[in-house]
């Protein structure tokens, strides 16, 4: 099996010649320039780089939240650049889990209900939904906080709920945009441990943006993005 083959067959994420430009006030800003990236299945990667280098933009493309100006993006076997918005939305519901820097939990829902939320997108009995959400919360170590509302949780706990929400659908790929950015050292460590565990025990492909070199050390691969180009 050649190196080239293993890349495309075993790739969770495959990006070829992707260009992303933003046009603002008549000016075109090229944020990503002919970018290639291959993330093998089961890899845990950290993405670093100065602010404004295009890290979030790249993650958004991988999550199907945004579309490239040109180039190919294949994630979990789907050609995102060729899909319609509706298709991407449906695909996203099943294939990616997203963890935000600021958690973005719904304040009116309990921890358990927040985790259940993505399951509403799938046909499932409410009992089954609940069971799966409980399992996800158990994985992140919060089975004792299921009835708590976000405001009753610490930042680290909120982020763990967000991770449970990201994995409850059993997606192949998990992406996190500075998931530990708002957290203190200890909480950040717990989150990173969780990511490692998800990667090792459940085989999730994880790609995570971070500014924190310690966090990046936990990943199996560290990539650096500078001015739209991967180093």
């Amino acid at each position: 099996m050649s190196a080239e083959q293993s890349k495309s067959v075993g790739s969770a994420i495959s990006i070829k010649g992707v260009v992303k430009e933003f046009t603002r006030g008549g000016q075109t800003l090229r944020v990503l320039d002919s970018l290639d990236l291959h993330v093998p299945e089961g890899s845990f990667e950290a993405l670093m780089g100065p602010s404004g280098s295009g890290k979030s933009t790249l993650l958004n493309l991988i999550a199907g939240l945004d579309k490239p100006t040109s180039g190919e993006i294949t994630v979990a076997g789907a050609r995102l650049d060729k899909m319609s918005d509706a298709e991407i939305t449906a695909w996203r519901a099943a294939n990616v889990g997203i963890v935000f820097q600021s958690y973005n939990l719904l304040p009116v829902l309990t921890a358990l209900e927040n985790v259940e939320l993505p399951l509403l997108l799938h046909k499932m009995t409410s009992a089954e939904r609940k069971k799966r959400a409980q399992i996800a919360l158990d994985i992140v170590g919060l089975s004792d906080r299921m009835g708590h509302y976000p405001r009753m949780l610490s930042g680290g706990q909120e982020q763990r709920v967000a991770i449970a929400r990201a994995i409850v659908n059993d997606p192949k790929v998990i992406i996190g945009d500075e998931p530990t950015g708002d957290l203190d050292r200890n909480s950040a460590d717990e989150i990173l441990k969780l990511f490692e565990q998800l990667n090792r025990e459940l085989g999730k492909t994880i790609i995570m943006v971070t500014h924190d070199p310690e966090a990046a050390e936990r990943a199996t691969v560290i990539r650096r993005l500078n001015k739209g180009v991967l180093a």
Partner: peptide, 16 residues
């Protein structure tokens, strides 16, 4: 607005 944005990111459709 942000909550709806996150829900969209999770995969909720515009219609929903």
């Amino acid at each position: 607005t942000n909550e709806y944005a996150s829900m969209k990111a999770i995969g909720f459709r515009a219609k929903t």
